[in-house]
Design a protein around this nucleic acid. Sequence first.
RNA 1: GGGCCGCUAGCUCAAUGGUAGAGCAUCUGACUCUUAAUCAGUUGGUUCUAGGUUCGAGUCCUAGGCGGCUCACCA
Length: 782
Amino acid sequence: MIARYRRMGGYRVLHPMGWDAFGLPAENAAIDRGIHPQEWTLQNIAQMREQLQQMGLSYDWEREVTTCLPDYYRWTQWLFLELFAMGLAYQKEATVNWDPIDQTVLANEQVDSEGRSWRSGALVEKKKLRQWFLKITDYAERLLQDLDKLPHWPEKVKAMQTNWIGKSIGAELNFPIVGSDQHITVFTTRPDTVFGVTYVVLAPEHPLVAELTTPDRLAEVTEFVKQVQQQSETDRTAVDRPKQGTPIGAFVLNPFTNKEIPIWIADYVLYEYGTGAVMGVPAHDVRDFAFAKQYNLPIVTVIVGEEEITDRAYTESGTLVNSGEFNGRPSEEAKSLIIQTAEERKIGKRRVQYRLRDWLISRQRYWGCPIPIIHCDDCGAVPVPADQLPVKLPENVEFTGRGPSPLAKLKEWIEVPCPQCGKPARRETDTMDTFMDSSWYFLRYTDAKNEAQVFDRSQVNDWMPVDQYVGGIEHAILHLLYSRFFTKALYDRGLVNCEEPFDRLLTQGMVQGLTYKNPITGKFIPAHLIENLQDPTDPDTKVKLVTVYEKMSKSKYNGVNPGDVINKYGADTVRMFTLFKAPPEKDLEWDDADVEGQFRFLNRVWRLVTEFQPSAVTTTIDKNLRRIIHRAIQAVIEDFEEGYQFNTAISEMMILSNALQDATDKQSSTYKEGIETLLLLLAPFAPHITEELWQMLGHDRSIHLEPLPVVDPSALVVDEITLVIQINGKVRGNIIVPAKDGNDKALLEDYARKSEAAQRYLEGKTVKKVIAVPGKLVNFVL
RNA sequence: GGGCCGCUAGCUCAAUGGUAGAGCAUCUGACUCUUAAUCAGUUGGUUCUAGGUUCGAGUCCUAGGCGGCUCACCA
């Protein structure tokens, strides 16, 4: 739609399509049905390509890319090596979710809130594995700052990314350990509350725990650490669960008060965030307050607001008390003063902390892009030389769904000489996260068939950035953040000229289907089993069903097969319906009646055009009709330019169509102009029917090669305007006045005073004030 | 709990601070052997609530209600 519209607007349009085709579903299908993932994937692609082609989407299929084919993933590997050369790809030991039944690593999203695998139902274990990461954290600040350079992105998406990056400004403070020359470093955003610290908490995984725990506490601490390790992260970070912890027997000194305070470990402190240690300020932090209450730890107020609060944590700003030399300072000022003091005394420093963590890209799965690295005992991780790319996925593998990745079992594939020293070495058997494949595909589209390089720089810089990107909100963080990171990294590498990949972003809604649900059992009932759809009841239990619109899916029996609808009404009707029913960013509810409505509209257009006789057109001009025509052009163009409001654009076209139907003289030249304008405006929406009708009107060239109609401002001029008469802001009538007088306030007032409505309401009253709005109204204030 | 969005006719959505509209649905009639299609007409509003600003508020401000999405022991 947008592509067709822009093309008619005279732009060079690159409108490609491709397939993000690596991933777990294909591999699972292979395990379940014994089909090779490649075969299964290519079959699906062929089917989907056919469906899409029926819709008349005007894709440039010559630029089609498929991420699971070597001519594409060869360059994914090449880019990985570029990142590796930049020091952005590295390996480290990390704690991951391990499914003991399927013998595989799972992403966080694949573990439910109870800590169970979505596939096997097994309790997920934590396991430390050596994994590949990308240093997206190096780009945290730029990813955050540059959101400001994206005025055409939805605020919602930007807010989500800001949230995800999670920048917080604060300080690191050192608490010296009693009886040791070491210290515990905590991160805090509230250095102004440091005088209120009554304990320090370490994450259970913190390395100092083992070192500092006193012998009398050892048994209990060990038990607690073990207990925490068994919990899933979702479990551990659930908001309303009680906080648990235990003291380890050691103490630190509060560097500002020099008081001795105990060290605890607790489940609410995460090792991955900050320094893995926090200072406990129960008076001014809700979590610390709850923890202190539970374990009877002292609560010291150091900030006061207007009222004294003791029954909960006071987390707002205020004035410092019980804080020595800082007493009486407002908390905002105290923050910087205390950081400054800490820096001077070398017991802390200003620190910016991000929530964003490095991107774990290793997958112990077969159906993904192989990581092009060879491990050598002497040389370490050695990149596969560029001329040996791609590292192809071996095809003869066994899919059991058990044991390690199929790749890890292929001796002849794994064992290769080291590219540096030639000694026997081993291939990396992990594949890449599929988000790697999709983080740069838009760059490949600019030069999709290039066999010599990843893309030609002149091509990529000619087209990039993408003017209009369309995707679902589900990618608000993942794909859109990764792609922004990739683009910035490649910019730094000198491979592209743009720092942001997508100029405008449209997050389109999904089509939802009417779903019948038994409110008691929660079961979904297929519509064809229901006797009376007006009053739906469960065919078995006769319970009254609830009807809701939900995302279409097989398990909910609420799907619509696009092929069926296209067969019945044609692709144009389907396009019109989906565009008219809701604004593009909103979900839309599939409704057969509304589909019919669009079908009827297109039929009306068909009749309108086929009943028109182009041969007998006169030279008559219908001024009123002409105004409606040009108003429609103006409105449709505005709807496009102001955020692609297709639904209202279609409304405008209906109004034009109605006006044409009502026209008295159907042979006038204006009528012809109206018919042709309607077709041109409708062409991006209903490409097939408009093309057909366009040719019936005697045009040789395709309608899609025509330029958009242009508004003739003179056609919009009206001879007369309706002047609204208001008394005290209330509408009391209206009169028709010549348009040429519309900007003369005095004249308008004059007209208004003479109007019947004004005469009636103003009789015997004094007018205090008169407001005349040019071309619109006159308001008498009494 | 934080952030974002929304609340207008039965439904889905419009309305630069200036007469609240469109499509669908409804209802009535015409045409028709009947149905479908088509045509003509028709109904429909406390713009979530309460205050405020204004000559004038669906629109701006404040407070609240309801719904959705999203994030969340992030120190």
